[in-house]
Design a protein around this nucleic acid. Structure first.
Length: 886
DNA sequence: CGTATCACG
DNA sequence: ACGTACGTGATACGA
């Protein structure tokens, strides 16, 4: 039987766009020696390899758009009229993409007056007719209308290699229509990015419904007269011409006058000499290595690095010299407080040393070297190595380069604990991921082949060493070098010491709460069963939904994608309908306290009676910390029931106290600073109640005495809304007022704080132009969706553009304070210990006699962390437990 | 392993 | 018209 021929068709322009933006954050590091940007070419190559491997085609064609003028613009002048010009950094790469395809032996093609879509549509039809299995690769969904039994359309998702396969079945499942009907849907809803309107007031939802009902635009109009009178019917009738024109524009041609046939698309495979020349021109060194002839197919792709077993005997030799060395302590799991050490490695590219026993960490020679600040170390995750070393009595000084931390500062996205994937983000492909070597989940283990294991450690060490120059250069290009050296790098050590210190938690206090909660939960459970008439799992939203909305016939206020919503907001609206609602609310509240806080925290107390959380310094997109295993940044506070948990958090020595300081309204102060708003700055300079001040402004009051509690509450929500990147709908939902009124609040707000309004507009504009926003300390967040054609994505990016500089600058400020605080405690020889950070709050334990010192010292360090145009304000308190700190 | 819910700033 | 507040982590279900 002859093998089926496989045809791969690639939408060159849209895949190039995706490639460009997938590696947009690496734009600065992907420049060849001639100053040419190469990020899109690099990512395009990887996308191409990925799809070639997946499809293994016999024939390939890449189609490009020939220009702006096409038969569609002749039919409708505004077609794609609002489309932004291709960025220059991408346009300059197009000739190299063409060269790359030539070297791959892949035919590429463009046709005057037609779009790439039409070339693909025509060729796909021909291929299918010839009995070929056709795969289309594109970055947008327009082409999915071609999907059929023989044609699969792969659409790129995020990143370089993730794809979504559109088949007729997938269409049915996802949208409830056939691929062809997508054209009809677009005829009605129009296409914003292609700039044709469809029918007035008809969006995706409505269009889908209409097509599911009528099947096609033609049939819809055949029956439009029978529809019952409505605004929509009127719009449909008025816009009939536009609907049919839109349908025509949306239809991908399958009869474009292309001048090549299937025979021209035969894929012979790459020309390695041509590829080598191109890679040299583009400085794609990692790809050049891949081209090197392999002696036999079974040989490892990575050539072996020079490794010696690290022993007590050869430590002096291994540690000789003052040149920088990479160092690592390897563990299989995340939690470095407890995880066994499986290897210790160090060295330089001349010679790597790897020990597979943890005992080496107790060697005095190694401990001396680790403690010596003059011995320069490169690591991946300083805090992880520091804490692990501490378990063996070692202290690490002299950490110069932390690849993980630097990578996070360069681009906050996806800095996992996996060195291999972080390396890949920076174009370094010479190292495997841990998942590939150790496996994942239950099967995670040290490889059976010891040589494979040791080479993996060596390759990781080498990777850190090799990436150092490039990443430090990138930091400098981003003006982030001092953010790294003066803020994040020292902070890692401060955090390590907080984690090591841990906080004492009294198990008996938690257990007593657990006993009482258990009884109360049992009572509530029985009452709920009585009301419901039978037993069920209250924790199952599905079963609860059935009881409330099917059996008891309560009105379902909201739906989720899987069924009825039973969230607090919904239940509160049902309060008066049945006594069961209050019982469920109470049950939920207590069950949360029991499972997450009583049982959860109990299971995390170490043998030393303390909880040692991990602060994740390289995760959030704004620069905040996060806290894991357990999360000590979300211990209950707002309701007294849950707040009791805090009584279990106590000082670790008798006669000591818990001391706490927090910033007052730090985010709004940051907003007053960055916006330069005179009215808001004045309020803070005069130490006024900012929410009451806002209330006076938006309610047009003349005297503070006129501000009611409710006005202040609404003003407070509005202040928050501004920080989050306001929308009238969001505000209206939050405080339960009509949308119109929320809009009036916002308008009044912007009128009273005009420079805040200017700033929100300015920051969005800046984000659009440069693709990222920054905090006061140059922390950077990329916003690739800021120019997205998808409205939701774009608006989300716009809100983020407003929120991140505020939340992120506040994070910068407390981080500076933490570093200064750790230094001050050391300088003044205080026993007080910094234990926790909760975003705008620092928590300490200290001997009672040091409390008066802290009451002066902590606020003075915190409010002088940075100099803003408004003062920072800090409130402090102390007590026997965390609960008593209020 | 994704979803819903709810704890924090 | 469209669908929306920003940033996190832990737990319980249920496929």
């Amino acid at each position: 039987m002859p093998t089926t021929k496989k045809l791969l068709l690639v939408d060159g322009n849209s895949v190039a766009f995706r490639a460009f933006f997938a590696m947009h954050s690496a734009l600065d590091s992907f420049i060849n020696r001639d100053g040419l940007h190469t990020n899109a070419t690099f990512a395009f190559k990887r996308m191409l390899d990925n799809i070639l491997e997946q499809v293994d085609p016999t024939n390939v064609l890449v189609a490009f758009d020939a220009g702006k003028v096409t038969f569609r613009t002749k039919k409708f002048e505004e077609y794609k009229g609002t489309r932004a010009k291709m960025p220059g950094e991408l346009a300059e790469q197009l000739p190299f993409l063409h060269k790359l395809l030539d070297a791959y032996g892949i035919k590429w093609y463009e046709l005057k007056n037609y779009e790439a879509d039409d070339i693909i549509g025509t060729m796909a039809q021909e291929g299918a007719k010839a009995g070929m299995a056709v795969t289309v690769l594109s970055g947008d969904r327009d082409l999915t209308q071609l999907a059929s039994d023989q044609i699969t359309v792969q659409v790129t998702l995020k990143g370089v290699t993730e794809l979504e396969a559109y088949t007729p079945a997938h269409f049915q499942e996802k949208l409830g229509i056939t691929p062809k009907q997508l054209i009809d849907v677009k005829a009605l809803m129009g296409d914003n990015s292609d700039n044709y309107p469809g029918v007035t007031k008809v969006g995706e939802k409505t269009a889908l419904k209409l097509i599911q009902e009528y099947g096609s635009v033609e049939n819809l109009y055949a029956h439009v007269a029978d529809m019952k009178k409505s605004k929509m019917k009127e719009n449909l009738i008025n816009d009939k011409d536009m609907a049919f024109l839109s349908k025509d524009l949306a239809t991908i041609r399958t009869d474009a006058p292309i001048t090549l046939g299937l025979a021209d698309t035969v894929y012979p495979g790459p020309d390695n000499q041509a590829l080598l020349a191109l890679y040299q021109e583009l400085d794609f060194n990692s790809f050049i290595k891949d081209l090197a002839p392999q002696e036999d197919d079974d040989a490892p792709v990575q050539k072996d690095l020079p490794v010696t077993a690290l022993t007590a005997a050869n430590l002096p030799q291994a540690l000789a010299g003052d040149a920088p060395k990479t160092f690592m302590i390897e563990m299989l799991g995340d939690n470095y407080h407890t995880e066994p050490v499986i290897a210790v490695g160090l060295g330089t590219p001349d010679q790597w040393y790897v020990a597979t026993q943890d005992a080496i960490l107790r060697e005095p020679a190694l401990q001396t070297w680790l403690a010596d600040a003059q011995k320069v170390k490169y690591v991946f995750d300083a805090k992880r190595n520091y804490v692990a070393a501490h378990r063996f009595g070692a202290t690490i000084n002299g950490i110069d380069f932390d690849m993980l931390l630097v990578s996070y500062l360069l681009n906050t996205v996806d800095n996992s604990n996996d060195l291999g994937s972080v390396a890949a983000q920076h174009g370094y492909t010479g190292v495997e991921t841990d998942a590939a070597v150790y496996g994942t989940g239950k099967k995670r283990q040290v490889p059976d082949d010891q040589a494979v294991f040791i080479q993996h450690i060596a390759h990781k060490l080498a990777c850190v060493y090799n990436l150092q120059p490039q990443l430090v250069k990138d930091l400098q290009a981003h003006e982030q070098y001092t953010l790294y050296t003066d803020l994040e790098r020292p902070l890692a050590i401060v955090l390590a010491n907080m984690e090591i210190a841990g906080i004492k938690v009294l198990p008996d206090t938690l257990k007593a709460m657990g006993v009482s909660l258990k009884e109360r939960l049992q009572d509530l459970e029985n009452q709920i069963y009585t009301e419901a008439g039978h037993e069920f799992n209250i924790n199952s939203t599905k079963q609860l939904g059935t009881v409330l909305f099917d059996e008891m016939k309560l009105p379902p206020i909201k739906k989720t994608k899987t069924g009825y919503s039973t969230s607090v907001a919904v239940l509160e609206k049902l309060q008066d309908e049945s006594p069961i609602i209050q019982m469920i609310l109470s049950y939920r509240q207590l069950a949360k306290i029991q499972s997450t806080y009583v049982e959860g925290l109990l299971s995390q107390i170490h043998p030393d009676g303390k909880i040692h959380t991990r602060y994740i310094q390289t995760l959030t997109q704004t620069g905040r910390l996060s806290s894991q295993d357990p999360n000590l940044q979300n211990i209950p506070m707002h309701q007294d029931e849950g707040k009791q948990i805090r009584k279990a958090f106590v000082p670790s020595h008798p006669g000591w106290q818990i001391f706490d300081s927090d910033y007052s309204q730090v985010e709004l102060r940051v907003l007053a600073h960055v916006s330069g708003d005179r009215n808001m700055q004045e309020a803070f300079k005069e130490n006024r109640d900012i929410h009451a001040n806002t209330a006076m402004k938006i309610f047009h009051l003349t005297d503070p005495s006129q501000v009611t509690d409710n006005m202040r509450r609404q003003a407070k929500a509005t202040n928050f809304g501004i920080v989050y990147g306001i929308s009238d709908y969001g505000l209206s939902q939050n405080i339960g007022i009509p949308r119109e009124q929320a809009k009036a609040f916002i308008d009044a707000y912007f009128e009273q704080y005009p420079q805040v309004k200017d700033w929100t507009e300015q920051i969005v504009k800046t984000a659009r132009e440069q693709g990222y926003v920054e905090t006061i300390m140059h922390r950077r967040r990329y916003l690739p969706d800021i120019n997205a054609k998808n409205r939701n994505l774009r608006q989300f990016a716009e809100r983020t553009a407003m929120n991140t500089p505020i939340q992120g600058s506040a994070a910068d400020i407390i981080k500076v304070a933490m570093i200064n605080m750790a230094q001050a405690l050391k300088d003044q020889h205080l026993q007080a210990t910094m234990l926790l950070q909760v975003h705008d709050e620092l928590l300490f334990e200290a001997p009672r006699e040091e409390i008066p010192i802290l009451e002066k010292l902590v606020p003075s360090i915190m409010d002088s962390a940075v100099k803003l145009a408004v003062p920072l304000k800090v409130d402090s308190s102390f007590g026997d437990t965390w609960y008593d700190v209020k």
